[in-house]
Simulated scan of single mutants.
Amino acid sequence: MPTELDEKKAFASRLKQALKRSSKKIETATELSTQFNLRSNEPITPQAAGKWLTGMARPTIDKINTLADWLDVSPEWLRFGVTDMKRRPAKGAKLPDDAIQPTAEELEMLRRLRRLSEYRRQLVEGVIEQFSLDGEIWKD
């Protein structure tokens, strides 16, 4: 069973991952607190931001919601690493027509996925979500 310190460290890791993929590169606690304070009615200090980044503290739910909205990730993923929530599409984003029509291979994969237990489906969805986040961070 994870300890509270483990959970804080895991949060810090997810926060850093989300910050890496943000349009404004954040490298210090001061930068994080400045950008956060531009988006929140409840300002934080650079010391608080530093504790988030080092895994010494985890923000309150309302602050996690602000971070998640800013960084375009689900609050559940940021807080717990849960990836079964669907990401919101970007404003004005429209799926291309070929994304709507699955290939024969994709349909077979979907059939196989549906035969898995609920728990295993969630694991697979979590892996896919993680890979998609990683792909957005580490563009070739």
Rank of each mutant, 00 (worst) to 15 (best):
P102K: 04
G50K: 05
R114P: 04
R58A: 12
E27W: 06
Q122G: 10
K86S: 12
T3F: 05
L133Y: 08
K86W: 04
K139F: 02
W138C: 07
F80M: 13
S33M: 05
E125S: 10
L15I: 05
E31Y: 05
L113S: 00
D6W: 02
Q130I: 00
D98H: 11
T30A: 14
F11H: 01
A18W: 02
T3K: 09
S13Q: 13
W70D: 03
S22E: 10
K63Y: 01
V82C: 05
T83C: 12
V124L: 15
D97F: 03
W138E: 15
R112M: 14
R114M: 12
T54Y: 02
E136P: 08
K9I: 14
E108M: 11
P96N: 00
Q130W: 08
M85P: 01
L38P: 05
L107H: 00
L19W: 01
K24Q: 11
T28W: 11
V127S: 01
D140P: 15
E31V: 00
S74W: 05
E106Y: 00
N41T: 12
D97A: 13
A99Y: 06
F36L: 07
T83F: 02
T54L: 02
G92L: 09
R39P: 03
A49C: 09
A93F: 13
A68E: 02
I100G: 03
S74H: 04
T83A: 15
L5T: 12
Q35I: 08
R88N: 11
M1H: 06
F131P: 02
L67S: 06
Q47K: 13
D69Q: 11
R39I: 03
D69S: 14
S74I: 10
I61H: 06
R114G: 01
D140M: 06
R112Q: 15
A29I: 08
A57K: 08
L95P: 04
Q35P: 04
E108H: 02
P102Y: 02
P102E: 04
T60C: 01
D69A: 13
T3M: 08
W138T: 03
Y119R: 13
R87D: 13
K8V: 00
I137V: 15
A57S: 15
F131D: 11
R87P: 06
D140E: 12
L32C: 01
W52E: 00
N41W: 08
R79A: 15
P43A: 10
L123P: 04
Q101Y: 03
M56F: 01
N41D: 13
K24N: 09
S33N: 07
S40N: 09
N41S: 14
A57E: 11
V127G: 03
I61S: 12
R87W: 05
A57Y: 09
Y119L: 12
T45S: 15
S33T: 04
L123E: 14
K139D: 01
P89L: 12
S132F: 06
K51W: 07
P43M: 07
K63P: 00
V73Y: 03
F80A: 12
R120L: 07
E7Y: 01
P46G: 07
P102H: 03
E105H: 03
S13K: 13
K8T: 06
R39N: 15
K94V: 15
L110N: 05
R14A: 05
I100L: 15
P96Q: 08
G50M: 09
W70N: 07
Q101W: 06
I64K: 08
L71G: 10
S33E: 08
T60A: 14
L32S: 07
T103P: 06
W77K: 01
R14H: 10
